[in-house]
Design a protein around this nucleic acid. Structure first.
Length: 107
DNA sequence: CACCTGACATAAT
DNA sequence: AATTATGCCAGGT
């Protein structure tokens, strides 16, 4: 089994940017990458996947650019994703019939 | 140092 | 509208 490694500078930047996302709103992986001016959606996703600062860092407020939930707690589907969706709904985020976040909810 | 994997994005089919 | 293929960067082995 692999031991936890210390967060890299890039990952730290991602966590910090994620902290700035207000409740009731969501951002996308690519949006964060653009804000950081560094890396891409893939890199951001990898960083959030190992987010050691939950729940201080609201990684559940980060979704895909097309409105899909993305992943949560290392899983891209299953009960973990359902939890993520409930948390967002609880914060006031609205979903459509296809299970995608409404565009107006995305910052 | 080279290769592989991954909570993505976008264009094409 | 949904699925497939290609490209992206960063981290791990």
């Amino acid at each position: 089994m692999s031991a936890d490694r210390k967060p890299t500078d890039f990952e730290m930047a991602v966590y910090q940017a994620t902290r700035g996302v207000p409740a009731g709103k969501v951002t996308s992986y690519g949006r964060l990458a653009a804000t950081l001016g560094r890396g891409t959606a893939r890199a951001v996703g990898s960083a959030l996947a190992r987010n050691p600062f939950a729940p201080e860092v609201p990684c559940h407020r980060v979704v895909r650019a097309d409105g899909a939930l993305g992943g949560f707690n290392g899983a891209t589907e299953g009960p973990e994703l359902a939890r993520k969706r409930r948390m967002l709904e609880q914060e006031g985020v609205r979903f459509d019939a296809a299970g995608r976040v409404r565009p107006e909810t995305m910052v």
